[in-house]
């Protein structure tokens, strides 16, 4: 038992779980410009900038929320808007843009416009702030890849 205590004590010296360092986060901010006629408000239940750490195949694949950075809710009906997502873990975001919740179903999300600069890839380093621009053209809404 003594040996067990010593072994456990030594193993536990590293202290277990620890928070990620705040040094490994950055900020993504940007501007969204809306072109054309807004769709009916009941088909835009929610509206946000999302940055994905993967390329989604469909709606259900999109909903890997632990691999997504999401802005606050954006307003409906504006010509342009700004967003900022702070405390974002560093990494590569190959698929980002503005997404809307289409129906009451919490999981019914679809893209409205995508980040196109740098082939749509955002690379965020520690302590960096990345500026992006997104254009939403309601006449040419993108589909999932």
């Amino acid at each position: 038992m003594f040996a067990l205590t010593v072994i456990l004590g030594l193993t536990a010296c590293e202290g277990g779980l620890a928070p990620e360092s705040d040094d490994s986060v950055g900020t993504i901010r940007g501007t969204v410009t809306y072109l054309g006629q807004w769709p009916p408000e009941d088909s835009v239940r929610d509206l946000r900038f999302v940055a994905l750490r993967f390329v989604p195949a469909d709606t259900s694949d999109f909903l890997q929320l632990n691999r997504i950075e999401v802005s606050r809710q954006l307003e409906y009906g504006l010509a342009s808007d700004t967003f900022s997502v702070r405390g974002v873990g560093t990494g590569v975001f190959p698929y980002s843009g503005i997404a809307r919740q289409v129906t009451e179903n919490l999981f019914s999300w679809a893209p409205l416009g995508l980040v196109s600069e740098n082939d749509g890839v955002i690379i965020l380093g520690a302590g960096e702030t990345i500026d992006v621009n997104v254009t939403v053209d309601f006449a040419h809404i993108p589909r999932f890849p």
Partner: peptide, 17 residues
Amino acid sequence: FSRFVPDADIAVNSIVL
């Protein structure tokens, strides 16, 4: 579960004395 909950895929040894 871990696709909706942040860092729910984290696992760690548990050691309790």
